[in-house]
Amino acid sequence: MNHTAEAPAAWDPAFADADDCLLSSDQCVVRGQHYFVRGLIEIPVVDSDEVFSWGVWVSLSRENFSRAADLWDRLGREAEQPYFGWLTTDLPVYSPTTLNLKTHVHTRPVGERPGIELEPTDHPLAVEQRTGITLDRVREIAAAVLHGGGERR
């Protein structure tokens, strides 16, 4: 019931050995100038009690990234106000692209990935986050990401 992007769109494997770059399971820095965190876009599945999650990367300002990093292991961090960010993951089943959609990053308790709330637009991903998807749509997404096929919505 989930699909996760391994790195933000701005990441290049050639950055792996650079001193001003970092890619961990939760945070990414590119050239000491671009900052990203991994979070979850959760979409309710309307005909079940389940939630489908997209594991995505969101860019943050240097200031917000530093703040999030400072609070990373601090109990009570979920009281933090949401951070503004730009979605930096191109999800393969949506058209137009999901790159650069506006988001709010909601910090959760220690050990949980942030929740990513999309700005309420008419983009198909934002609509699905607000209204939910069916199990048939989950199967369609799974087929597209596992087999590289499927139409973009």
Rank of each mutant, 00 (worst) to 15 (best):
Y94W: 02
Q33R: 14
D122Q: 13
V51A: 03
P92E: 14
D47F: 01
V110M: 07
D73W: 12
S25I: 04
Y94T: 00
Q33N: 11
T88N: 09
V138L: 13
R74H: 11
D12W: 14
S66G: 06
L99F: 05
L40G: 02
A10W: 15
G55N: 08
F84S: 12
G148T: 14
D136K: 14
P8N: 11
T88K: 08
D122S: 12
E63A: 10
D136G: 09
D90K: 09
E63Y: 12
E6N: 11
D26F: 09
D136P: 04
T121E: 14
T103W: 06
N2S: 13
D17C: 12
T98V: 00
E50K: 15
D49S: 07
N100K: 07
E117Y: 08
Q33C: 07
F65Y: 01
Y35C: 06
T4Q: 14
T121P: 07
C21I: 03
H3Q: 11
L22N: 07
E117P: 02
H147C: 03
A126N: 05
S53V: 03
V127H: 12
G32P: 01
G149C: 15
D17I: 13
V30R: 13
G85Y: 06
W72V: 02
F15E: 04
S59Q: 14
P96M: 08
M1Y: 15
W72F: 10
Y83T: 01
R130H: 13
R108G: 01
D73F: 11
R113V: 00
D122E: 10
Q129F: 06
T89P: 01
G150R: 02
R130I: 07
D12H: 14
A5G: 07
E119H: 07
W72S: 04
D70L: 09
N2I: 07
A16K: 15
F15N: 03
S66R: 12
V37Q: 08
D19S: 11
A142G: 05
H123E: 14
E6M: 09
D12T: 14
I41V: 06
A16P: 08
A143V: 08
V93Y: 07
V145Y: 05
S61K: 00
L60R: 00
S61Q: 01
L99I: 10
W11V: 02
E140N: 08
H106R: 11
F65R: 00
R139N: 15
I43M: 05
G111T: 10
E117H: 09
F52A: 13
H106Q: 10
E42Y: 06
H3G: 04
S53K: 06
H104N: 05
I41G: 01
K102T: 04
L125F: 08
L99E: 09
T134N: 15
K102N: 02
C28S: 14
E78D: 11
P114V: 03
I133P: 08
D47L: 00
S66P: 02
L87F: 01
A79F: 12
I141E: 04
T88M: 07
D12C: 12
E50P: 07
C21W: 06
E50Q: 15
A5T: 03
S66D: 15
Y35N: 06
P82H: 11
V105I: 10
